Lab assay of single mutants.
Amino acid sequence: SEIVVAMYDFQATEAHDLRLERGQEYIILEKNDLHWWRARDKYGSEGYIPSNYVTGKK
């Protein structure tokens, strides 16, 4: 599975969105859409994140 790191904070506005915290790692579950990826955080929460807010883990 692909691990990404959040470059920016993202506040979830929709129920299906996942909040991003800058510097935290997330697991990508689905990339069915170019701009919104389904991800899981370290607490096990899942939701959609803006793909341009994250970068591949170095």
Score class of each variant (00 low, 15 high):
7 M>P: 01
18 L>Y: 00
33 D>T: 10
58 K>L: 14
42 K>C: 07
6 A>V: 03
11 Q>Y: 14
4 V>T: 03
27 I>H: 08
19 R>H: 12
42 K>P: 07
54 V>W: 00
2 E>K: 07
31 K>H: 06
45 S>I: 13
41 D>A: 01
29 L>Q: 03
36 W>C: 12
56 G>D: 13
49 I>D: 00
8 Y>C: 15
1 S>L: 15
6 A>E: 01
48 Y>R: 11
20 L>M: 10
51 S>Q: 06
12 A>E: 08
8 Y>H: 10
48 Y>P: 00
2 E>C: 15
56 G>P: 15
25 E>P: 07
6 A>F: 03
44 G>Y: 03
28 I>A: 00
9 D>C: 06
26 Y>K: 00
57 K>Y: 10
55 T>G: 06
41 D>C: 04
13 T>H: 11
43 Y>M: 09
38 R>F: 15
53 Y>M: 12
58 K>M: 13
34 L>K: 13
16 H>V: 08
45 S>K: 15
11 Q>L: 13
38 R>S: 04
13 T>V: 14
47 G>A: 02
54 V>I: 07
39 A>I: 04
36 W>N: 06
58 K>W: 12
36 W>A: 04
20 L>F: 02
1 S>D: 13
22 R>F: 08
10 F>M: 05
29 L>H: 00
21 E>M: 08
13 T>R: 13
57 K>L: 13
37 W>V: 03
27 I>L: 12
4 V>D: 00
28 I>R: 01
20 L>S: 01
5 V>A: 02
20 L>E: 00
12 A>I: 07
38 R>V: 11
55 T>R: 11
16 H>Y: 11
53 Y>V: 06
11 Q>I: 14
36 W>H: 06
42 K>Q: 11
51 S>F: 05
50 P>V: 03
47 G>H: 02
29 L>V: 09
38 R>D: 02
9 D>I: 03
22 R>M: 11
55 T>V: 13
33 D>Y: 09
42 K>W: 05
17 D>C: 15
18 L>P: 02
38 R>N: 04
10 F>N: 03
32 N>I: 14
4 V>P: 00
30 E>D: 14
50 P>A: 03
19 R>E: 10
36 W>E: 05
11 Q>K: 11
37 W>M: 04
39 A>G: 05
19 R>M: 10
30 E>K: 04
32 N>S: 14
2 E>F: 14
50 P>K: 04
47 G>D: 00
47 G>Q: 00
9 D>Y: 05
51 S>A: 13
21 E>C: 11
33 D>R: 07
12 A>R: 06
49 I>M: 03
47 G>N: 02
22 R>D: 04
6 A>C: 06
25 E>A: 08
8 Y>D: 07
40 R>S: 05
29 L>W: 04
13 T>G: 08
14 E>I: 08
14 E>D: 15
43 Y>N: 11
27 I>E: 11
39 A>S: 02
10 F>R: 11
28 I>V: 11
33 D>E: 08
13 T>E: 10
5 V>G: 00
15 A>Y: 08
55 T>Y: 10
35 H>R: 10
8 Y>M: 12
37 W>R: 02
27 I>P: 00
15 A>Q: 11
2 E>W: 14
42 K>M: 12
35 H>S: 09
22 R>Y: 09
33 D>K: 06
48 Y>F: 13
14 E>N: 15
23 G>H: 06
29 L>M: 06
51 S>E: 05
32 N>K: 13
33 D>I: 05
52 N>D: 13
57 K>T: 12
32 N>Q: 11
16 H>R: 12
